[in-house]
């Protein structure tokens, strides 16, 4: 009996060593594998890359539609909405030389509602107060309804109307690209289109 139990223990110890060694060599490989797995699996968003053709320039946007995630993948768009106006503006307000501050917010919004997408983006460049005005949700809602559709009136986009507008615009550009390819019946362009989307 004694000999058998000794033999069993030896075997157990040996197996332990084998496992330990296995794990030791195995673990780095496992980590490597995990890194290579794409991390965006299992989330309900769609990624759209588009290249504006008609606009003649590069317009690449990663669009989140109802993504629910609040990470600022949206370049500056989303971040801009959340960012707070620095204290410096409050100081400037007191000295009050700017025309923009003398105007009532309704007027500003009203005037901005006549601007188009690139103009509003440029306007937000001028200073933080202007950016706040140019990022006004109602202005973007109005612009969305003007440029796209009036149907989605009851909808409230998670990340605000500006992000929603940009996402829709990106999708529209992709659609336009796609229809152009169909119209031209170009196989090579279609292949290119498919690979670009991925």
């Amino acid at each position: 009996m004694g000999e058998i139990s000794f033999f069993l223990r030896c075997r157990q110890t040996f197996i332990c060593y084998v496992f330990a060694t296995g794990r030791f060599f195995d673990s780095p490989i496992k980590i490597k594998k995990q890194q290579s797995v794409p991390t965006n699996a299992g989330r309900g968003f769609c990624t759209v890359r588009s290249r504006g053709r008609g606009g003649g320039g590069r317009f690449e946007t990663t669009a989140y539609l109802n993504g629910g995630s609040s990470s600022s993948v949206f370049g500056g768009f989303e971040g801009e909405m959340v960012e707070k106006v620095p204290a410096a503006v409050a100081a400037e307000k007191l000295t009050g030389a700017s025309m923009m501050e003398q105007l009532v917010p309704e007027i500003t919004t009203h005037a901005l509602s006549y601007l188009d997408y690139p103009s509003l983006c440029r306007l937000s460049m001028t200073n933080s107060l202007m950016r706040k005005a140019a990022n006004d949700d109602n202005a973007w809602k109005a612009l969305y309804h003007k440029d796209f559709t009036l149907e989605q009136d009851s909808l409230t986009p998670v990340n605000g109307w500006k992000a929603y507008y940009a996402a829709t615009r990106a999708i529209m550009n992709v659609n336009a690209d796609f229809f152009n390819i169909i119209k031209e019946r170009s196989v090579s362009a279609m292949e290119h289109f498919g690979s670009r989307r991925l």
Binding site: G76, E80, A88, V89, E92, S98, M99, Y117
Partner: peptide, 21 residues
């Protein structure tokens, strides 16, 4: 008549975010 209250870094960041404009 507004002053730019952005730092050059901030300005570059916003310009990049709104590149297509």
């Amino acid at each position: 008549h507004i002053n730019c209250d952005y730092t050059p870094e901030e300005e570059a960041k916003i310009r990049k975010a709104n590149a297509q404009a």
